[in-house]
Amino acid sequence: MSNADTRGQTAPSSEARRRFLNGIAGAAGGACLLALGAGLYARQAAALPAEALRPPGALAEADFLAACIRCGLCVRDCPYNTLKLASPGDAVVGGTPYFTARTVPCEMCEDIPCVKACPTNALDHQLTDINKSKMGLAALVDHETCLNFLGLRCDVCYRVCPVIDKAITLEKQHNPRSDRHAMLLPTVHSEHCTGCGKCEKSCVLPIPAIKVLPTRLAQGKLPDHYRKGWEEKEKHGGSLIGEQVRMPVRGLEDAPPAASGSPASGSAGINSGWKP
């Protein structure tokens, strides 16, 4: 107010200009500081915690943060209260939608109401088949506690999976401990897993052995130049290097067949053919 009141008076023009420039400098300084603060905060907050999954159809995180205007319409239209709008103090960027699989997973609604509700396309409207969504990727992270790995038939994660037999399969393996039984190992296939979180939610352990993580954390990547021999062979319709001469392995020419039962030999270990 004091500014506006005195400005009308007949101050010499150089004085007026000085005040004006001072004002601008002050304003710009303050504004820069604020913007810097916002920018730094933004960078730090941009790292989404591993338990926080974005709704179906969410753009890649960087694009999502440019697109989502934090209206919460997706949250309102989620019939299972899966989605939450982050509030300041949460680890997720304030006002953006997320869900935690172990709390309430996504039920994979066929009509995808959350995507339909989004006014900005932060949830991509091109996603019309919920089975194609990629909210994250399940990973059986703990082989030591998973009951199926211990030789039991829990199978719960497998049974609850909405994309059963495609996203999770049970892979049969010999159980070297009892030597009489099989182990049916829950195995996730990234091509079909939507990251809905139902497996993590229903894992019977107090802390789940299977977890849904953002794909960037859950998925590995082979070097680009790697080729799988067996695939190349199939493509080619035969071995690419022709018949191989079989050389005897010195000292093992007449080794006795490995004693079964011991995990260190024969049917277990590196040559057992175990493939999760």
Partner: peptide, 20 residues
């Protein structure tokens, strides 16, 4: 000035920086 800067911040960071 701040108004202009919120747009600049959005442009530079590629996200709704001010809304943070």
């Amino acid at each position: 000035w701040l108004l202009a800067l919120t747009f600049v911040a959005a442009l530079v960071t590629g996200s709704l920086a001010w809304e943070w």
